[in-house]
């Protein structure tokens, strides 16, 4: 995996780090040996002495840095970090609330050629279920940069999933800035609420344009903070629209859809549909083919939105 010319959340992160490093900001990156050699070389300034033999050791070391008063950034593939490192993150980072910033790249199906073992779609669900762990899935360059800027003020651990597929163009500077537990209304509408995050935001915006042609005005919310979740933003939107679609490049269980469903089911039940991957492991393949096959396109969002819009109370 490399930072290519197409903008992705991961390449946005690398660019933001490079800019800040050039400006004199020091980052303490911790990574596993194989990841550091194959994926991070010449991309991020990972010191050789902060490279460890395994994901488990890297997690432990990140905790060691945090105990010593530092603010480490633990970098790795989503499947390595959330899969192999889960028990370690749970016991030494989340339980103790150590301020370790966990950055997981190759989230969702963006690591398209590697197959099911690397394309872990349940990472956000696992991390969301972990007590004291915050989960962020940024969708644009500005949010990624904001998270880096404001991470010093975040005293608890967080897991940031970065997709390696293209993300939409940068937001306008006037849009609401990032804050933990926040969400951003990217497009205003009155007929259906579309909650999304990560690489799906671009497809949600395209879906909103298609829905506009059908006279369905869609409000698109970038839910970059899956935990804590911006319930107020969601509720104020669905009180106007009366229906909702949650679209994300992840497993339907436990991720963004679950956060939306829990909030609405508890507070304000409305028709709700999910556009995400069902209860299955994904195949390898071309990215567009995978999106098509697993129903992660703007067409599925349009269909889901039309369904909930028809079901809403009038």
């Amino acid at each position: 995996m490399k930072c290519d010319i197409f903008p992705s959340a991961w390449s946005a992160f690398c660019s933001a780090v490079s800019e800040r490093t050039a400006a004199g900001t020091d980052f303490l990156f911790v990574a596993e040996e194989e990841t550091a050699e194959k994926e991070l070389k010449n991309i991020l300034p990972v010191s050789a002495e902060n490279v460890f033999s395994s994901v488990e050791s890297a997690v432990m070391s990140a905790a060691g840095f945090a105990i010593a008063g530092k603010t480490p950034w633990l970098i790795g593939r989503a499947s390595d970090i959330a899969g192999r490192g889960y028990a370690h993150i749970r016991e030494v980072i989340a339980q103790t609330g150590l301020p370790v910033r966990i950055v997981a790249f190759d989230g969702g199906i963006s690591c398209r050629h590697e197959g099911a073992s690397v394309q872990m779609l349940e990472d956000t669900a696992l991390m969301r279920a972990m007590p004291r762990m915050n989960v962020l899935v940024p969708s644009d360059m500005r949010t990624v940069a904001d998270i880096i800027e404001k991470s010093a003020g975040i005293t608890s651990p967080f897991y940031m999933r970065l997709d390696s597929s293209a993300i939409p163009a940068k937001y306008s500077d006037s849009s609401e800035p990032f804050h933990p537990g926040g969400a951003r209304i990217v497009r205003e509408g009155s007929c259906v609420t579309i909650c999304t995050c990560g690489a799906m935001l671009g497809r949600a915006l395209r879906a909103a344009e298609k829905l506009e042609i059908q006279n369905i005005s869609a409000e698109v919310i970038d839910c970059y903070s899956i935990k804590p979740f911006a319930e107020n933003v969601l509720l104020s939107s669905v009180r106007r629209t009366g229906c909702c679609v949650a679209a994300s490049e992840e497993s339907a269980s436990g991720g963004l859809f679950a956060a939306v469903a829990e909030c609405l089911g508890r507070t304000y039940p409305v028709p709700l549909r999910s556009v995400s991957v069902g209860d299955c492991f994904v195949n390898s393949g071309a990215y567009d083919e995978l999106c098509e096959y697993y129903g992660l396109t703007s067409k599925e969002i349009v269909d889901a939105a039309a369904q909930v819009w028809a079901l809403r109370r009038r």
Binding site: M60, A63, G64, F65, I67, A68, G69, E91, V92, Q95
Partner: peptide, 19 residues
């Protein structure tokens, strides 16, 4: 420091000592 059932915790001790 936390006492966890997961290993290897020497990595945590080593980093703390180094810092």
């Amino acid at each position: 420091a936390p006492c966890a059932a997961v290993r290897p915790q020497i990595a945590m001790a080593g980093v703390l000592a180094r810092e």
